[in-house]
Write a protein that binds this DNA or RNA. Sequence first.
DNA 1: CGCCGCTTTGACATTGCTCAAAGGATGTGG
DNA 2: CCACATCCTTTGAGCAATGTCAAAGCGGCG
Lengths: 258, 258
Amino acid sequence: MDQQTARYDFDHARRGAGVLEDPFAPLIAKLQRIARLDDDDVRAIRAWPIRIQNVRGNGYLLRDGQMVRDCSLVLEGHAFRSKLTGVGQRQILSFHRRGDIVDLHHLELRAADHNVQALNEARIAWIPIDAIRATIDARPGIARALWRDTLIDGSIQREWILNVGRRDARTRIAHLLCELIYRREGPPPNEERRRFELPMSQEQIADATALTPVHVNRMLQHLEAEQLIARERRMFVVQDWDALCRVADFDPAYLHLD
Amino acid sequence: MDQQTARYDFDHARRGAGVLEDPFAPLIAKLQRIARLDDDDVRAIRAWPIRIQNVRGNGYLLRDGQMVRDCSLVLEGHAFRSKLTGVGQRQILSFHRRGDIVDLHHLELRAADHNVQALNEARIAWIPIDAIRATIDARPGIARALWRDTLIDGSIQREWILNVGRRDARTRIAHLLCELIYRREGPPPNEERRRFELPMSQEQIADATALTPVHVNRMLQHLEAEQLIARERRMFVVQDWDALCRVADFDPAYLHLD
DNA sequence: CGCCGCTTTGACATTGCTCAAAGGATGTGG
DNA sequence: CCACATCCTTTGAGCAATGTCAAAGCGGCG
């Protein structure tokens, strides 16, 4: 099932044709948060020709080694990067949400060095690399914003090396939770209790934290017993954000949201 | 000793003043290997004003959280990036050799999200960020080359997440050795036996592979017992490159040296 | 209803860690 | 040229965190 290919449901829905809302809105909002874009920049992005695809959970958007001619922008749902060891153990490298362009790397690197998969059912827009490249050459503001986005991505990867390498299981999982929340909401929720959807299975959490699903399960129970989080289905409630951050050894500086 | 500050021996040696060889040669060679630079590009790089500094082993070039106004180019010796957990455990994130600009990130990110330290005695050139930025704006060829360099850096980080997360101790260490050799020599040595200097202590290997120094020691002995490597002081000899790569689960594709 | 994927539990195995001490190298000052 | 300090490597014994394997529960969906 991990290995199965995505089923392709092409819409061939160009912008506006059948799509009610602007597919670029989350991307533009994000870039404006991390850099400055003028109106022409925004117009240039909106002019990108896209091809929309629905992918189901664990379906591949891109496989390690593949040559890349389009970048994928997440419209709905989530995606993640992964790599496999020679004996087939999976490591998840990052999670992505709506507004994220997952594989900007391939503007300069021909072959993919990792997989990209959908977490659950997801809706993806494919943007031709040539279109992005042309925009970058013409509009330094956009080049700057995408460059900065990639650098933040790199910073998150560095934090993951630390997380996976040097923190114990409980801390590691708590850290991942904090990161997911913080990246979604910007600054942390200041109300005492707050609920979030946790879109990934415990197996996927395990692959992201380099643990076993069994152990992830036990540690989630542990965090629950400590009154840091509460869980119901795939929703969970942060009972005490500050305490969770402390347990998680979480400092959002590496997200560079300034 | 980890924590101690570098002792500053400023030379204030501008290019040519007392320095016999071109400090930019390794950088230019590297960029030409991964991208195309024309003569004007090379001239632009050579025009960067630099300040040279000697740093001793484990001395800090940059500390987590610090504001950055210069990038460091390694001239002699080695440098590495590191982060600390809240309880002070160190994780090494990457190693760098002559010709590497270690903290290009900070062209766009104000505060450092990690430390940079010298491995042993090292010689560093500081390049003002403004100079690099001006060059990037003026010369797309250089922008492209540096961008690509950063993307390769990101790919290596991804491989490290996999290495630290999903490979066992022996494989992890072997993988690190393969990477260090491959990045130094380009394509692997095709003679049967080949000797290399291993510039880092076992403690530093431990921090890079997220192990204990004790365990690193035992695994190195293990690799030696398997006839994959031989060791004498800080030199070691690869006895069988192909076998080492197999044990290491090493595939150089992620280095994007095409 | 019955299948399927995900979560949960238990018993046990193992990798890698901890602590502590000893054994080289190398360098420095007397 | 020796004595000593320092830093790094090596060894041993015991332990803890996390993994493995297997089975049972549970919730949703066709």
